[in-house]
Amino acid sequence: MKLTVYLAGEIHSNWRNELKDKAAALKLPLLFVGPMENHERSDNIGEDILGEQPNPILKDAAASQINNLRTGLLLKKADLVVALFGEKYKQWNTAMDASTAISLGKPLILIRPESHHHALKELSEKASVTVESVNQALKVLSYIFEDGK
């Protein structure tokens, strides 16, 4: 059985590659998908497809429509969602993706540092599992495939 895992979270650090590499080393049968990680591509996709927009607000709106379509489709197809809230960046997109996963009934592994406990307490209570590190999330993913013998 191969599971599709949507990796929600900030796109500025290397956490996705760390998780993917460790999962591959364990030979876990996982296919990873997620948001567009190329920030420039994500910001410009609306104009790349629809043409130049008359102002920055409409440029953002055009890009958001296309990014939301992509994210929504991939979230719906995912078997499981891992959402990382890190220390450094404002993470509204992560909160939106995690909330969407919950509303779709998708199992959610929420990664958040202890320092974000209070800010994310409601979201954490709706997640399937809350952990504090990528390594702990990997252990949860690995446990899914243990045969119990």
Rank of each mutant, 00 (worst) to 15 (best):
S99T: 07
L26R: 15
H39T: 15
E18D: 04
L75E: 00
A63H: 05
K27M: 00
E132K: 15
E122H: 05
L30V: 04
P35M: 06
D97E: 11
D21M: 00
S42L: 08
S103C: 02
V129P: 00
G46M: 08
N67D: 12
L104Y: 08
L50I: 02
Q65E: 01
A23R: 14
G51F: 01
D79K: 14
K126Y: 05
L110K: 01
L74Q: 11
R16D: 09
K121G: 11
A127W: 06
D43L: 12
E146C: 13
A62S: 09
R70K: 05
K88W: 00
T130E: 09
T130H: 12
M96S: 06
V82Y: 00
P35Y: 05
K139R: 04
T100D: 11
A23C: 14
T100P: 12
G51L: 02
Y6W: 03
Y6P: 04
V82I: 03
L50P: 01
Q91C: 10
A119S: 05
K106C: 14
A78I: 00
V33I: 05
L84C: 14
S124E: 10
L31W: 10
A101T: 11
H39M: 14
V140Y: 05
L108D: 08
A119H: 04
T71S: 14
R41H: 07
Y143R: 09
L69V: 07
G51D: 05
A101Q: 10
K22R: 07
H39Q: 15
G105V: 07
W92M: 03
T94A: 02
P54V: 03
D147Y: 04
Q91N: 11
L3K: 10
N17I: 12
L73I: 15
S142V: 12
H117T: 04
P29C: 01
F32M: 00
Q136K: 14
V5R: 06
A83K: 01
I45L: 10
K121S: 13
Q136Y: 08
L50S: 02
E125W: 07
Y6S: 03
I49F: 14
E87L: 14
K126G: 02
T94R: 02
R112G: 13
I102E: 10
E37M: 01
L104Q: 09
T71G: 14
S133Y: 09
H117L: 03
N93S: 15
E87C: 14
K2N: 00
K106D: 15
N68D: 09
A119G: 05
N14Q: 10
V134T: 05
E122R: 03
V131H: 06
N93D: 15
K20E: 13
H118R: 11
A62P: 10
Y143H: 08
N68K: 06
A8L: 11
N93A: 15
D97A: 13
S133C: 11
M1W: 01
A127L: 09
L19W: 00
H39D: 15
D97Q: 13
L3M: 10
A101G: 12
I144M: 11
L26W: 12
S115T: 01
L50H: 01
K106V: 13
L108R: 08
A101H: 09
F85A: 14
M1R: 06
S142G: 12
D147G: 08
